[in-house]
Nucleic acid binder design. Structure first.
Lengths: 298, 298
DNA sequence: TCATTTACCTGACTAAAGTCAGGTAATGGA
DNA sequence: TCCATTACCTGACTTTAGTCAGGTAAATGA
């Protein structure tokens, strides 16, 4: 990797942790330990399940428990059993807690304003734009792509959202029963592969590969949630599927797609897929693509 | 201030502290408390005076002492009296300390690489560029501009560096004795004003104002160190001087400049200064400017 | 020369943050 | 129905980070 890039990243890390860290401590602290402040933030106006808090803040169960008791003693938070599962507790802010959160948010706002204040209008715009870019691309970098059981809850949720989107985008709607099959059992090794892209554990996209034998493979279920598009996730899913296909001995990879899905079509064209004659009778397909001569990547 | 800007800054803070913070702790920690790791970093290969370490890390004297003793016990650092001042101690890394620093830097490098690894080449370039921009502009925002005694060590250092630069840039060199005077006593209120721009306490630029009575003022000693140019520091110095001049009742502000100093000339033109006939016999001046009708800013 | 300042140190604290080993109650699958 | 799992809690720790009040030695300025 380019060592100037690494240098820049390290300089950035140092600069940002110094400046942001200093501001965050001064402003957010406000007499309260940082852990409690973060917890108030994370509970938020809608409240949160303790289980989720533990995951989001990556805290020890006992430690979190104690933090919550402390906030309860201060009258900022109340908690009770969750309605649907008696084991989990749901924490919500009291009126006092909400006004404390307001104060925190005001301070956070002030910290942001203090950072921008010394700059002129044009510099300010450029800084904000660059921050947006960094945030977006760091988000992209935090996306992981891993094989998953196509029958798992996350996988089902992805596919369901995917189908719902197709139903909205196709002029005549979409009925999964009418298209060609891709049952869960067809998408687990050795018959195929199902990948989920996750951001901080939450599924944000998926893609699948169906191995048809004789060096043939088919790409299915390529989808990225709307809020996470433009981060190169589909490209990474496709890369991973192609790598797996090549390792499974696939020479010809094909797929079909609907005319409404322009961004998908351009992804495939960009990746060397060529339009071919229809290879199936999918009523929702208007374009058929194939790519020959997959290479194993080093 | 634009609330979308503030929102973006806050989102950025959160995103960055989560991702960088997590990386920094995991990688840099490496079994060692963060404080000690930071200290090793800060001592660096050339060693450092304890006094400077205290200032740079903003640590309590007693706390720093203890951290140093701990590193000494681990055989990573040795310290002895400074040669020139028996009160200050100089800390240097031992061979073991240097190899520990190597390990730390390798980890930091790895963390940077891990951040970039999932991205494609183009995204990587954009992220690095945006990080550079953020770092640069946050540096710009951290610059403070304050009045200073023109006779202080920092002020003298600024002026000396300024003169040395003039001596290099002017074809025939520069001899301060031959130009018009701006003695320290002329640059303290109420006769005038001397401003120093600082980044983390270190002077990076200066600017002065000489009040000549009858609504006349003159800008002098405008300088920004080469490494900090392009951050809008000169603009902020000029703004501050103009503000002070307006408050002191100045109507006409003038200045002279050398033909070699293009960037200065364009700064003045951009700020509404108009070229006029020579108002002095400064042998180093080729352009004379003045600005009329200064306004008090709200 | 002598008081003051500066640089650093030690000892005695405290608060925050985090870990770990056990517990209890609710849930869910065999 | 029962047993493993999950979610959460409590108590008993440790480590890290930081503060504060004093103290010593070197340097500095009147």
């Amino acid at each position: 990797m380019d060592s100037r890039h690494l240098q820049q990243v390290r300089r950035f890390n140092r600069a940002v942790t110094r400046r942001i860290g200093a501001l965050a401590d001064d402003y957010l602290g406000c007499g309260r330990p940082l852990g409690e402040a973060r917890l108030l933030f994370e509970i938020g106006r809608e409240g949160a399940d303790v289980r989720d808090l533990r995951a989001r803040l990556a805290l020890d169960s006992g430690y979190l428990s104690r933090l919550l008791r402390s906030l309860e003693r201060q009258g900022l938070v109340s908690s009770r059993r969750a309605a649907d599962d008696g084991r989990v507790r749901r924490a919500v802010l009291t009126a006092k807690g909400r006004s404390e959160l307001d104060a925190l948010e005001r301070r956070s706002q002030d910290a942001a304003a203090a950072l921008l204040a010394p700059l002129g209008e044009r510099q300010r715009e450029r800084l904000v734009a660059a921050m947006g870019e960094v945030e977006r691309l760091m988000r992209a970098a935090a996306v992981t792509i891993e094989p998953a059981d196509p029958d798992s809850a996350d996988a089902r949720a992805c596919i369901e959202t995917y189908f719902r989107e197709l139903d909205e985008r196709f002029e005549g709607g979409f009925d999964p029963a009418r298209g060609p099959s891709a049952e869960p059992e067809e998408l687990v090794p050795p018959a195929g592969l199902f990948l989920i892209a996750r951001l901080d554990g939450r599924p944000v996209g998926c893609g699948a590969l169906k191995l048809r034998g004789k060096g043939m493979g088919e790409i299915k279920r390529m989808w990225v949630e709307p809020a996470s598009r433009g981060l190169g996730i589909a490209q990474r899913l496709l890369d991973a599927l192609e790598r797996h296909a090549a390792e499974a001995g696939v020479n010809v990879l094909r797929l079909d797609t609907h005319r409404a899905l322009d961004e998908a079509r351009s992804l495939y064209v960009r990746n060397g897929y060529a339009e071919t004659a229809p290879y199936n009778a999918n009523p929702y397909a208007h374009h058929w693509f194939e790519k020959r001569g997959l290479r194993r990547r080093s």
